[in-house]
Each structure stands twice: as structure tokens, then as C-alpha cells.
């Protein structure tokens, strides 16, 4: 797999209203690179949900997007509280988000399932108290 473009972002965990800025930037970059719209949409939605999760649960984190010859890889790293039970967290409707987040239109337990839905591969590594690493791939 030969890498062509690599993008890095710091996701600010302080402000929910600004969450999603990295995803908007990725969307713009993918458009400029001439990536097909359907692939752009999948990558943007998966990354947006990931960004929102990092802001809601982990106080922010780091995002990295690799645009390779055959796929786009999204790596999300945070040092938040971690996910105690990944299988449970992957169920649609399971959420530990506070009510305040629900009133903003998120936190319905759809974030991780949506990330899986829109990507071809998704790997979650998490240790309670240490943080969560998520790697997703969308094939071109």
C-alpha cells in the first residue's frame, strides 16, 4: 500500500459546537484530490461521528487521515476514559452520553454503529482509563 497524502488534526475537546471542523477539512481535501463523491461521503460521515465521539467522551484527541492508492484510512486516537465493553458500545441505541448532548441531536447510541456502517473495515482498541484508538478504512 503506497501512501500518497497524509492529513493530521488536533480535535479540540473543549467546545462541542466546533466539533466536526476536521471532517469538513478532510471533505474539502478529498474533493480537491478528485476522490469519488460516494467515497467522500462515507469517509466524512465516519470521521465526523468519530470527532463528535472524541469531543463528547474523551475531551478531544488526534485524527489522522491517510489517502492511499487503494483506500482511505482514518485513525482516531484519544486519551479519554476508554470503552469498557466494546461489543455493547457497538449496539445501536447504547449510549453513555449525557442528556445535554442528546438535546444537541447526538448521543443516541448511533455514533460507533454509523462509523462501522460507512466504512469497509473498523478496528477499535481501548483500555479503560487510558484511551481509545480507532482505525477505519474505506476502499477506493
Amino acid at each position: 500500500m503506497s501512501e500518497t497524502v497524509r492529513l493530521y488534526f488536533d480535535v479540540d475537546g473543549e467546545d462541542f459546537t466546533s466539533a466536526g471542523q476536521a471532517s469538513v477539512q478532510v471533505k474539502k481535501s478529498l474533493r480537491q484530490l478528485g476522490i469519488p463523491p460516494e467515497i467522500i461521503r462515507k469517509v466524512s460521515i465516519a470521521m465526523y461521528e468519530g470527532e463528535i465521539n472524541m469531543v463528547i467522551h474523551a475531551g478531544g484527541g488526534k485524527a489522522e487521515v491517510l489517502i492511499c492508492e487503494d483506500c482511505i484510512e482514518i485513525r482516531l486516537r484519544d486519551q479519554g476514559p476508554g470503552i469498557a465493553n466494546i461489543e455493547q458500545a457497538m449496539q445501536e441505541g447504547f449510549s453513555t452520553a449525557p442528556d445535554a448532548i442528546r438535546s444537541l441531536g447526538f448521543g443516541a447510541g448511533m455514533g460507533l454503529p454509523n462509523m462501522k456502517r460507512y466504512t469497509d473495515e473498523m478496528k477499535i482498541e481501548s483500555e479503560p482509563g487510558k484511551g481509545t484508538d480507532i482505525t477505519m478504512r474505506v476502499y477506493l
Binding site: 459546537t17 466539533a19 466536526g20 441531536g105 447526538f106 448521543g107 443516541a108 448511533m110 455514533g111 454509523n114
Partner: peptide, 25 residues
């Protein structure tokens, strides 16, 4: 918004009563 991201496909118009920047995003 999570439901919009999950179930919507090729819809061009969103009707909502929710007001925060994440609606536009």
C-alpha cells in the same frame, strides 16, 4: 442528527427544530 447520518441517503432537504451548528455540519 445521528439518525440523519445513519438513515438518510441522497436527501437534499433537512427539516428540523434543532438549532446548533452541528445541524449545518
Amino acid at each position: 442528527m445521528s439518525d440523519v447520518l445513519a438513515y438518510v441517503k441522497d436527501q437534499a432537504v433537512l427539516l428540523t427544530g434543532l438549532v446548533n451548528p452541528q445541524v449545518v455540519r
